[in-house]
Design a protein around this nucleic acid. Structure first.
Lengths: 333, 333
DNA sequence: CTGAAAGCGCTAACAC
DNA sequence: GTGTTAGCGCTTTCAG
């Protein structure tokens, strides 16, 4: 079939192991033989068989990633494709191969994880979502298999993760609004059980505290899911209590819904800020100010810290990716 | 490390080759030993090492997919993630593993392809885009490596591909409009060098011919790229000639741009149809009627026909995926 | 129907 | 520095 390490060895008049060493970049090889071997490799157009290599050294250089396909907004929100692009970018640089699989239920996700591990196919795994009491995390820990989580897990003890600083991101948004003089800033969040939700609400509260502005709990709403209709309803509820001067939402979809309510009822003068800077944000009327979470970097660093671990020079257990506030007309007051 | 085929053999008191046969589902194995082996497998919780298997039988069950990350609308248009989801779905069903890599330039894409082949890592490749005079296709053909293209390539001779029937899809849109009584239907397309563009324009022309309606070439515009600003300009140009009663665009982005021009100038009474049914379509004002191309199925069938080929029972060289017209208010007249 | 043995292509002790 | 020798875990002739 192809040209093997033996052919190269013969051509260069050395042993296969020498060829192997040259390829691996071993240092204790004379420059002379190194050259001979490299010439032979070039001449024969030799390419190592990664499968054979994997079998011999028990490392595949493959990283498996599991993606939820049930995610309602998988297709409206390019989060995952950004993450995948970031993953691919670092992986290529570091010589890793990336495998992915979608799953519908947590059961299926766990199945994917098990499959990656049992088949000895992957060196490590990237989890792109994190549930409370995540069974995948539990399983991976139990099997002591290397993995990294995108999103901070509940219990960070000994797990690698990358995430934004959601507390700080929201804190900064609030600081900015409070400094502008806003005193009545409404909040719409969803899925309070998620860490990201807790952190964002925490940032909201802390900023108020630091600026000495009291919070009116009537305009702090948490709904069940990141859906436009729920944002719409929440806005309605808030206005039933009072008219705030600003509104922050933990996701753009919530902001879209809230905004629809405002538009329909011709209510002006409320600054609106969303989160995640989805592509639709700039198409809102008015274009929505939103916090960009740099999803691509989340993927990039996920591979990076996983690779660092796999190569034993464990540098960091986690990495925080910066967020950026993208200001648009919805906060132009 | 793990439990191997030898352990199973010992446990079942048979030879490793027998275990291998049982796993492979060989027929010339007595039910009795089959049971013994299966019991041992279960008892020891044995899972075959796919790497070792790949090395031995020279098939990896891995399919590599290459994705363009330069695609302007990679993130606005969920096309690729739908394709990837479809790929994953069939792959899981058929026991294939999926690897992906993004590339920025055609050079890089070719590099990915070469890497998949040279490293003996993949059994087949899926190309998710197709250029004119595609170097990846050329290379794959030269190497005689199994691959499938999403999008009909220029020269279909001997290549597997899946695509929509873009001719028919546009033909159907036009028929519908013509039957409604529209006589002046403008056309905005882009990238005339792409097959998809040619086909869609072809459908436009053919429908006119069949309905005996002449085409005014002044309202048939082809621009360089699928961009809103170019759609905007094209609409302006069209209106400089005459006001059509309807407009079809070969991509939603073009339609968005055209629509902006209409809105800004307060021009009403033109039915607008887009293509690809991107998520933003329903958020347009008015919501944009668009042709859904079923990207997920494109991915699904890409793997299917590739797998069919790999398993030697080559059934079909290509597969056509249905399109659906999603009617919204932009054609409500 | 089952076992023995060779080998897929590479790496990794272990020698010298 | 470099060669020799065993495997990595599985499949696959070839016998019987």
């Amino acid at each position: 079939m192809g040209v093997t390490i033996k052919d190269v060895a013969k051509e260069a008049k050395v042993s296969p192991s020498t060829v192997s060493r040259v390829i691996a970049g071993s240092d204790r090889i004379s420059d002379e033989t190194k050259k001979k071997v490299n010439d032979a490799i070039k001449k024969l157009n030799y390419h190592p068989n990664v499968v054979a290599r994997s079998l011999a050294n028990k490392r595949t250089k493959v990283i498996g990633i599991v993606l939820p396909s049930e995610a309602e907004d998988l297709f409206k929100n390019p989060f995952f494709i950004y993450v995948m692009a970031g993953i691919s970018q670092y992986a290529q640089k570091a010589g890793y191969y990336i495998m992915y699989s979608f799953f519908n239920t947590e059961e299926e996700g766990l199945g994917s994880v098990k499959n990656y591990i049992n088949s000895n196919l992957a060196d490590g795994i990237i989890l792109t979502t994190v549930h409370t009491n995540d069974r995948c995390i539990g399983y991976l820990q139990e099997r002591e298999f290397p993995f990294v989580v995108i999103g901070r897990p509940e219990d960070t003890e000994g797990v690698l993760w990358v995430d934004n600083d959601n507390f700080q991101a929201m804190y900064n948004v609030l600081s900015k609004l409070l400094l502008k003089g806003h005193k009545e800033i409404a909040f719409i969040g969803a899925k309070r059980e998620l860490n990201v939700s807790k952190d964002r609400l925490g940032g909201y509260r802390q900023a108020h505290k630091m600026h000495g502005v009291p919070i009116d709990e009537n305009i702090v709403i948490e709904v069940d899911d990141f859906r436009e209709d729920l944002g719409y309803g929440a806005m309605k509820k808030i206005l039933g209590s009072k008219k705030p001067t600003a509104l922050v939402c933990t996701d753009d979809l919530l902001a879209f819904g809230a905004n629809s309510y405002l538009t329909e009822n011709n209510i002006k003068g409320i600054s609106v800020v969303g989160f995640n800077n989805t592509p639709l944000a700039e198409y809102q009327n008015p274009p929505l100010t939103s916090v960009d979470i740099n999803a691509k970097e989340l993927g990039y660093y996920a591979v990076k810290i996983l690779a660092d671990k796999l190569e034993k020079n464990i540098k960091s257990m986690h990495h925080i990716v910066e967020t950026n506030l993208i200001e648009r007309q919805s906060t132009e007051y």
